[in-house]
Design a protein around this nucleic acid. Structure first.
Lengths: 336, 336
DNA sequence: TTGAAAGCGCTAACAT
DNA sequence: ATGTTAGCGCTTTCAA
């Protein structure tokens, strides 16, 4: 990061000199409150023109230092490697810009330490709000934010110390399970319990989905196989390992499955492809997540799509109202 | 964005008072150059402890205003909706953090005006470098950066006024085409020209890929069908429309295809699914891009994966050397 | 070994 | 209708 002409940046003082006026006039014009300062539209025009000619850009560092609100809004997100988080980030940016906020986003790779470090960094940059998406320890982040006078919000995974916006995991899983059970019945003629795979049993979302999974079985009068609930991680390899272990110990794996995310589905599909178990009798899957290629190429794979835009609308609603009651907002997911 | 206690943030003056010392001592200690200021490790320790107790975080806006380098580095990216850009963004963040740079990223939705606006905003935040990824008009952005004394770099799509790092599109396309032609021969017994679909004929990458496409046909002595080169957009619908039009005018569509990205592939697969043309004779595809589910679920789909980490290594190399010769660096893509 | 003070570029209150 | 001025919180000489 060196060389090249120092290229002293143009400041409002430079513009003031060029326009034969003062820095405060320039500032007023450029920030748009020159009507209330009753600056002549003549001067305003001149200043605007000169600023443009010079390619002037405010120095946000200086500007923000002086103001009391930064209008910077942060988001941490675990990964960018699936459509769900990609859509969240993209929508978040769009909605932030619409509200004249400056979004900064960083991915924390599901690493609790990185989450904390990222939060601290963002606070240094004076974020007014920090949205923790899918954070492993949202309450920790909320505490850090509050200590620094910033507000916080949880998305996707709930916390207890800040408002949380999540999918309606229970109802979604119940419906998805029902559909998958019926798909299975349609294909095989028999109503048989599904395998649940993926996610962390300790997290709220997975727990709720398991609850919905149970309920759907009960609704249809199908008994559950307790040892067929395998929630020991999101990573693809975790799912593959769990499947391996199950097939080793039982010699078979249920044909109907509830898969907890596309991430886990990746592992499931990889394992299935490498195993002879499903030759001629492909698995019948319900996946709590959405991906266009799975929807297009997957056979007998039913998907639920989380309502990202609904979730973010709710998020910005809270943010605009400045609310902070630690309520949990659940948004219904979408069935194709 | 309102209410809640104003929560005056702790400053170095507060810390100085608590520690019974001066702001400059606190600053020196907290920025780590207290050895050269020969501050007693006793005082240093005390200050550090108090800062921690108070949950102090520097105000970057103030800090950066004073320094001359920001160590902020910006990237604009078209979309987050595919693995390629997702991987770019994720890797970029990781590599930036490793170098103690602060990355800010924004997606510009393939909108030229948004690209320019985003660039200007980032310059206001004093980015030292701006990486334009897949930008529609990289040279425009380079000019804006240079006018503001910032450096710029092009990734994925080249420009003429700043260094550019891209995939070796020609060689990659040539190899992919060859493989697809041979896959087609293996399946059908015949060596027949492929359909080229997706991308913009006007962009450098697509042009290079078409060149590689031609060359591979020539290598294998297969004549090209000129009207089977369909490069009129990246969006899924564009691909689907082009396919519709072709099948309407010719009554058929070649079984072998070179698809220019997963985005286009989405449209292609959707159209194929809706058309009876390929019943019983599924298409044989080569896709210049990579997606795990396509790799897993797609049949007869060969993929090339762009070497994201190689491209970003090259990017940071230039960045660290401060280089700015407008050279074009081509990175070989990866075949499964 | 440390403190005082200047100043980064900007905004807003206060003067005219 | 416009200019002067005081700081925002920090880093960095310069003085002691």
């Amino acid at each position: 990061m060196n060389q090249q002409r120092p290229q002293k940046k143009t400041t409002i003082y430079d513009l003031a000199e060029l326009a034969g006026t003062s820095a405060s006039a320039v500032s007023a014009v450029l920030t748009g409150n020159w009507k209330k300062r009753r600056i002549s539209s003549q001067l305003a025009e001149k200043i605007t023109r000169i600023a443009e000619e010079q390619g002037y850009a405010v120095n946000m560092q200086a500007s923000l230092l002086r103001r009391e609100k930064s209008r910077i809004i942060g988001m941490i997100v675990p990964k960018y490697d699936n459509r769900y988080f990609g859509e969240i980030v993209e929508t978040f940016e769009i909605m932030a810009r619409e509200r004249d906020l400056f979004p900064i986003i960083t991915c924390t790779l599901r690493d609790p330490d990185l989450e904390v470090e990222a939060a601290r960094t963002m606070l240094s940059y004076q974020v007014e709000w920090l949205i923790s998406t899918g954070a492993t320890d949202p309450d920790r982040i909320t505490d850090i934010c509050h200590a620094a006078g910033a507000r916080s919000l949880n998305l996707d995974l709930p916390g207890t110390r800040a408002p949380s916006i999540i999918s309606d995991n229970f109802a979604g899983a119940r419906e998805l399970t029902k559909r998958t059970l019926l798909n299975h019945q349609r294909k095989t003629g028999e109503l048989a319990p599904l395998l649940f795979i993926g996610g962390r049993g300790s997290d709220h979302n997975t727990a709720e989905r398991i609850r919905g999974f149970r309920m759907a079985h009960q609704d249809l009068g199908v008994p559950i196989e307790e040892h067929h609930i395998l929630a020991n991680g999101y990573a693809p390899e975790k799912a593959a390992q769990a499947l391996s272990a199950l097939s080793a110990s039982e010699g078979s794996v249920p044909r109907g499955m509830f898969v907890n995310s596309t991430i886990s589905l990746e592992g499931v599909m990889r394992w299935i492809k490498s195993s002879p178990l499903f030759d001629g009798a492909p698995p019948i899957i319900g996946c709590f997540d959405w991906d266009p290629f799975v929807a297009l190429l997957g056979q007998d794979i039913e998907m639920v799509r989380q309502d990202v835009s609904g979730m973010l609308k709710a998020t910005f609603d809270i943010l605009e109202k400045g609310g902070s009651d630690k309520k949990l907002i659940e948004i219904a997911p979408i069935f194709g």
